[in-house]
Simulated assay, not measured.
Amino acid sequence: MAEELELAGGNAADFVLRVGQTIRKPWAASTESVQQFLTALRLAGVEVPRPLGRDEQGRQVIEFVDGTLAMDSGQLNSTELRKVGEMIRIIHDNSPKPTPADLAQWKVLIPAPKPDLICHNDLAPWNLILGERMVFIDWDGSGPSSRLWDLAYAAQSFSGLWAGTNPEEARTQLRAFVDGYRADEQQRRALPETMVHRVQAMYELLKRANCAGEQPWAAMFDQGHGAHWKATAEYVAEHLEIWREALIED
């Protein structure tokens, strides 16, 4: 077997290893469902990492995708944002609806108010590879959610709606991303407030985990993630009217 190289990232996994052109992670309760989800997307022609089952040590095996994380490449420009929005639309359009068994058994970290679609649940710059291929990685948190809930998280993070960002620049980036997704009028009107709720939910997760000592989220809260998401939630809420104007203007 090729040399095992430990990789950074994967906050919720005990380890992430690169072995040749594959990634090895622990096999979790949801891994089989995640691999079935990825297989279904690939059969529909969606560009996602190839699931490769288990290795002889019982670890999950998935294709390694070479490239640079979008989060390490600076803020994406409008053309790139439209491309990412288009990618996410393709993923959503080819994702299955959850069955009653999915809703009962497949738990997600931050549940959507009305889950009606199997989603990645962490479509963000830290999970997008840029290179010869543009591919979303780290599907371990997949599960029942909703198109709007998943889109809100992606729109906020990819469009650079972070505390300290010039809101006029952010609105231009947000419009490009949502245009790429081809969001309809109903989605555009619902998206600004949904972004607020989704970012607040991220902060509340970290806060609850910190109080309960639930890892790795408790440690992440203490390491600055709590303050970061609290400030982000306040920023997104403060400029809510700007996001509305950006998405519904002619």
Rank of each mutant, 00 (worst) to 15 (best):
M1W: 00
A2F: 04
E3T: 13
L5Y: 00
L7W: 00
G9V: 11
N11C: 15
A12K: 02
V16L: 08
V16R: 04
R18F: 08
G20Q: 00
I23A: 01
K25F: 04
K25W: 01
A29L: 08
T31S: 15
Q35G: 14
Q35H: 15
Q35C: 13
Q35N: 11
V48S: 03
D55I: 05
R59Y: 15
D66T: 13
T68I: 04
M71Q: 05
G74N: 09
L76G: 12
S78M: 15
K83N: 10
H92Y: 02
H92S: 09
S95M: 11
A104H: 01
Q105E: 03
L109K: 01
N121W: 04
N121C: 14
D122P: 14
A124F: 03
W126H: 15
R133D: 03
M134R: 10
V135F: 03
V135D: 02
W149G: 07
A152C: 08
F158T: 02
S159E: 01
G160V: 03
P167L: 04
E168C: 07
E169C: 09
A170R: 09
A170T: 08
L174C: 10
A176M: 07
V178L: 07
V178P: 12
G180K: 01
R182Y: 01
A183F: 03
D184I: 05
L191V: 09
T194G: 13
R198Q: 02
V199H: 00
A201E: 01
A201F: 01
A209H: 12
G213R: 02
E214L: 14
A219L: 12
F221Q: 05
Y235P: 14
V236P: 14
E238V: 14
H239E: 07
I242N: 00
W243A: 10
R244V: 09
D250V: 10
